[in-house]
């Protein structure tokens, strides 16, 4: 009887099982093996031991492309996730207010997320054009200086200065990418709104009776009740932004322009594999990325004990 059950179960999940072996497990093992090989697709992989990983370490020490990619990835992931948490909660709370037109406001906040990445990249490259773009026009009209966006590096990040860049241009290519990601904040809002709707109303009523004002209610009721969702969004957000590819590829001319300021891990990996055909080195990078994602996730889960209710 048990055998028949097993056969039936395996048959049902068969499609996934085949895909798992051929498209996930085999590639997973192969890329691990190749990360110890020299492999250019044309000849057979040749075992070189730890040399790919040593090369990564030496680039890290000497400030080569890999260390730049790591720094760029960290800047993009931390800035976009950090801002998305703060703005996401602020906006979601605002969207719970009982005002006229609330449904319309909610819809408008979600609308940008339906714009496909390719179209969003085209759109933002136009809006953020340093000379003709609307964003710089608005900045200048309110007395701020225009920014370099996708055509300059960020002053706040590595590498610190773009030759010939003039003072006052603080925001560069990575900040443009962060802005793009914040534009798609609607997905987070839906999750925060769902969580806000689940907060028991009685808690607020009790606090109100105790004389707590709006800010104290937010600080002592709303925020603690949101921590599980914040945690979820931070984990997902970090994992996704470390792996982000399409928008970065598009705004950076497919090569991390300008001056390597948008060369993130995933872009560097892609170019190493499919432009330089250095599959072994790219596989080693992929495994570093994998370990990095695992470490971030584990670390977040560990610290979550202290702040997630």
């Amino acid at each position: 009887m048990q055998r028949r059950e097993l056969q039936l179960g395996i048959a049902m999940i068969g499609p996934w099982l085949i895909g798992f072996f051929v498209l996930t497990l085999y590639p997973f093992c192969a890329s691990f093996y190749w990360s110890f090989c020299d492999y250019d697709l044309l000849s057979e992989p040749r075992w070189v031991g730890l040399s790919n990983y040593r090369r990564l370490a030496s680039e890290l020490a000497s400030g080569g492309p890999f260390s730049r990619a790591l720094a760029n990835t960290a800047y993009y992931a931390l800035t976009s996730v950090g801002l998305s948490v703060v703005l996401g909660i602020a906006l979601a709370v605002s969207l719970t207010w009982q005002v006229r037109g609330r449904a319309l406001y909610r819809m408008l906040c979600f609308l940008p997320t339906v714009v496909p990445t390719v179209a969003a990249a085209v759109l933002w490259m136009g809006l953020l054009d340093p000379q003709q773009g609307l964003v710089n026009g608005v900045l200048e009209s309110v007395g701020l200086s225009s920014q370099g966006w996708f055509q300059s590096t960020s002053a706040a990040a590595w590498p610190p200065a773009w030759p010939g860049d003039h003072a006052g241009r603080i925001l560069g290519s990575k900040d443009g990418l962060v802005l793009m990601s914040l534009w798609g904040i609607g997905n987070l809002l839906v999750i925060y709104l769902a969580a806000l709707a689940d907060v028991p109303k009685g808690l607020y009523e009790a606090a109100e009776l105790d004389g707590a004002g709006r800010l104290r209610q937010f600080r002592h009721i709303t925020l603690p009740m949101l921590t599980p969702v914040i945690f979820f969004n931070v984990v997902m957000g970090l994992i996704q932004s470390v792996q982000a590819f399409t928008q970065i590829y598009l705004v950076s001319d497919g090569q991390g322009d300008p001056a390597g300021s948008t060369l993130t891990l995933s872009l560097h990996l892609f170019l190493t594999a499919f432009k330089d055909l250095d599959m072994g080195y790219a596989s080693a990078m992929a495994w570093v990325l994998f370990v990095l994602v695992m470490l971030i996730t584990t670390w977040l889960f560990r610290t979550s004990r202290h702040w997630v209710i």
């Binding site: 996930t24 085999y26 590639p27 997973f28 890329s31 190749w34 892609f270 594999a273 695992m294």
Partner: peptide, 21 residues
């Protein structure tokens, strides 16, 4: 559980061998 675990795997890890398959 294995199925769920695959969701955490970055696509870059399997990208190259998958391409060859």
């Amino acid at each position: 559980g294995l199925l769920i675990a695959t969701m955490l795997l970055p696509w870059q890890v399997t990208m190259i061998p998958r391409f060859l398959v």
